[in-house]
Design a protein around this nucleic acid. Structure first.
Length: 444
RNA sequence: GGCUCUAUCGUCUAACGGUCAGGACGGAUCCUUCUCAAGGAUCAAAUCAGAGUUCGAUUCUCUGUAGAGUCACCA
């Protein structure tokens, strides 16, 4: 055995937008090629003229480029018909295939080409699953071309893998059932058998294989939702592979160094959006501050309220896991009170069973305290120190901090749930803060 | 239905035939400025079933069960 250059390939059919399964396919082939100084080929399997669309081919390339994958070489099967024709002719001549005049369901009669099945038991080795034996007799003489000029999937795949020098076929487990007939064709055309590795499917929550008409989320959708490509790559790889040391975070570069094809899993994995979100946040946290600010500002709406205010950034950042969360929360009205005074309900000002007079007194105390802070020093830290000093001394008067902090926070936000009062006050500024507190006191 | 593959916490998974079956997400509880978020700590949570091999099976074998894939003039 000579040391041949490793050649892998991912061969999607351009019949839909790329999803996580497509990404997995490309990712594993890409990583393995890079790990072995090899070449990775992208082959567009567009021999079905009805379903194949150029725009999908573009979408696949775009989606994969987004997660950082580009092939070294690109082929399109529709441009290789001469090659397939040559093999069909050769096979017919060598009698490993034969022409059969048949009428299909649409009533069209033509000369289909059938493979002459030698009816033998094929045993092949899979890197992840060991040896697999199948009796190919029940495959019958399957069709390999619609006619002399129109090759079908199994033929094109085998011919291309052979012609392109593919050494490793890394593909989803649906390929497992196809392998025996492809090996039969390989043997008929004298092609060397490549090394196989079948990885498990990415499953939908209903345990079905992820597919286009199955509600699969496209890579383009993930882009639109503001996920980071690093998170997608990390998420996908964890679906089929785990390192021995329980590490969770891997970039594409890390994977080229650490991924082990021999250790890929065998059972299908249902995806867990919660974990994806967690991963995405992990990568979000690694971003430089300017990048974070830029993105949050971008995802903040400017209609009907222009919320593109940098002061909101820190507060927003700690409660998102993907960029679109920014927009979602903004649209839900969670930040409205930063831009316009909220409607206050008097009863909600009251903390637990504190008596209303006490609440009023506490708000006034807050106003008094904040009044003393110079407008230029009206920042989070100062506000917090001053207000907390009071809140901490309340217990001596038989009150908890809540009876002081709650009314302030509610008066400023008008919400049951919101960021803390100091943060809000810091963003609103001295005048607006005091004005809102005043309004709350005067409600009677 | 035939053939093939698969089966550990809810989810993703780790464990030369010997571990209190480990980690992560999620969940719960507590702490941390009233709430929320973030952060920290703690806890709960699994070997599909039944045989067999073995001193000892998550691990090996068989059977069953369940799920998936594939049986196209789709890829």
């Amino acid at each position: 055995m000579s040391e041949k250059k490793v050649v892998t390939r991912f061969a999607p059919s351009p019949t839909g937008f790329p999803h996580l399964g497509t990404a997995m396919y490309a990712l594993l082939n890409y990583i393995y090629a890079r790990q072995n100084d090899g070449e990775v080929i992208m082959r567009s399997e567009d021999t079905d003229p009805v379903r194949s669309k150029k725009e999908y081919e573009e979408a696949i390339k775009e989606g994969l480029a987004w997660i950082g994958i580009k092939s070294d070489t690109f082929y399109r099967q529709s441009e290789r018909t001469d090659i397939y024709k040559r093999y069909i002719a050769k096979m017919v001549e060598e009698k490993t295939a034969y022409i059969s005049r048949e009428t299909n369901e649409e009533g069209v009669t033509r000369d289909v080409v059938r493979f002459k099945n030698p009816n033998k038991v094929i045993t092949f080795h899979d890197m992840a699953r060991g040896d697999i034996s199948v009796d190919t007799t029940d495959l019958k003489d399957f069709v390999i071309a619609r006619d002399l000029e129109s090759p079908l999937y199994h033929l094109t795949a085998v011919v291309d893998d052979y012609e392109m020098g593919v050494t490793h076929i890394i593909r989803g487990e649906d390929g497992l059932a196809n392998t025996p007939r492809q090996i039969l064709i390989q043997e008929a055309i004298g092609a060397e058998r490549p090394i196989y590795a079948h990885y498990p499917f990415v499953l939908m929550s209903n345990r079905q294989k992820m597919g286009k008409r199955n509600g699969a989320i496209s890579l383009q959708d993930y882009i639109k939702q503001g996920y980071l490509p690093e998170a997608i790559v990390n998420f996908i790889i964890l679906l089929v592979w785990h390192p021995k040391n329980d590490r969770e975070l891997f970039t594409l570069t890390d994977l080229i160094a650490e991924f082990e094809l021999e250790r890929i899993g065998k059972s299908g994995a249902i995806l867990d959006e919660k974990k994806l979100d967690w991963l995405n946040r992990e990568y979000l946290k690694k971003l430089p501050p300017e990048e974070i600010e830029k993105n949050i500002l971008e995802w903040l709406p400017k209609e009907p309220l222009n919320m593109k205010d940098p002061r909101l950034v820190p507060m927003i950042f700690e409660r998102i896991s993907k960029w679109s969360d920014v927009t979602t929360m903004a649209i839900a009205g969670e930040f409205d009170f930063f831009f316009k005074a909220p409607k206050i309900e008097k009863t909600k000002l009251i903390y637990k069973d504190t008596i209303p007079e006490k609440i009023k007194e506490n708000i006034n105390l807050a106003i008094e305290t904040l009044q003393k802070i110079d407008e230029n020093n009206f920042i989070l830290e100062n506000i917090k120190n001053n207000l907390m000093f009071i809140a901490d001394n309340l217990p001596s008067r038989g009150e908890g901090r809540g009876s002081f902090l709650h009314p302030i926070r509610y008066a400023l936000s008008g919400r049951d749930k919101s960021p803390d009062p100091f943060t809000i006050a810091g963003i609103l500024g001295k005048n607006e803060t005091i004005s809102r507190l005043q309004k709350a006191v005067e409600m009677e």
